[in-house]
């Protein structure tokens, strides 16, 4: 069951379109998996739309401002006429990969992330039973799919910036809480954690960090000068 959701403020900013694109991606993917947040987004959208309707300036000469615009717009054809049909999206969707593969297993992704399957690089092995595949978000940086095999864990670390994680499939714990499929997790410099998955199936997460992780113990400290190279 999903226990961890974006905050009300994050959902509101998501609907406004003022949340950063990378974080919006995670909120949107969470909403694909979480009916409760879908409903909250819908009602937030209605509220903002109602504000739009109530917004109007007092002194405003409509004809002067919009005279040409209306006739220009109505000269253009409907998108149905342009595309031939409205089914272009449906056929595109059919061809689109909606899951990612690792080690013979296939993981179905939330709708928001479908477009990013093609932007996902190869899986590479980190420590032990940990696998990572980078997702190119253009100038927004890099996100990662991280798979924790059964018993696999990310070395204990804290964050200089922020880390957002969405559980795509499976369960994991980090010494602070237990997380399940669909959970939306936000971490910052105040928290040190050691994510690990102990279930048989392991756990796939999608994660965005804006600053390199800072490893706090053991062998992994060797990674700190280079952590920007992988845990980005």
């Amino acid at each position: 069951m999903i226990k961890f959701h974006p905050s009300s403020q994050q959902l509101k900013e998501f609907v406004e379109g003022s949340l950063t694109p990378a974080v919006s991606l995670l909120v949107s993917a969470h909403c694909d998996m979480c009916e409760q947040c879908q409903l909250r987004v819908e009602s937030e959208t209605e509220e903002l739309a109602a504000e739009l309707v109530s917004e109007i300036e007092e002194s405003f000469d409509e004809s002067a401002q919009f005279g040409d615009m209306l006739s220009q717009i109505t000269q253009s054809p409907s998108s149905i006429e342009v595309d031939g049909s409205s089914s272009s999206y449906a056929s595109n969707l059919g061809e689109r990969t909606v899951s990612i593969e690792l080690d013979g297993r296939s993981f179905k992704l939330p709708r928001t992330l479908h477009r990013y399957v093609d932007k996902t690089g190869n899986w590479s092995s980190l420590v032990g039973k940990l696998w990572q595949a980078p997702v190119d978000l253009g100038n927004q940086g890099v996100a990662n799919f991280i798979f924790m095999g059964s018993g696999g864990s990310v070395p204990e670390h804290t964050h200089r910036g922020t880390e957002y994680t969405l559980v795509i499939d499976g369960e994991f714990s980090d010494g602070l809480s237990d997380y399940d499929t669909g959970d939306f997790i936000f971490m910052d410099g105040n928290k040190t954690h050691t994510p690990r998955s102990d279930t048989k199936e392991g756990c796939l997460v999608f994660s965005i960090v804006d600053q390199p992780l800072h490893f706090t113990s053991g062998l992994a400290r060797l990674l700190n000068p280079f952590s920007h190279l992988f845990f980005r």
């Binding site: 998108s79 595309d83 409205s86 272009s88 999206y89 595109n92 689109r96 477009r115 093609d118 932007k119 996902t120 690089g121 190869n122 590479s124 092995s125 980190l126 420590v127 990572q132 980078p134 190119d136 890099v142 990674l223 280079f226 190279l229 992988f230």
Partner: peptide, 18 residues
């Protein structure tokens, strides 16, 4: 959702591993 963007971008193959 009729407007679909182009999806062609090369994947990142080069990654440094632990």
């Amino acid at each position: 959702c009729e407007q679909t963007a182009d999806l062609n971008e090369a994947p990142l193959d080069e990654q440094v591993t632990l």
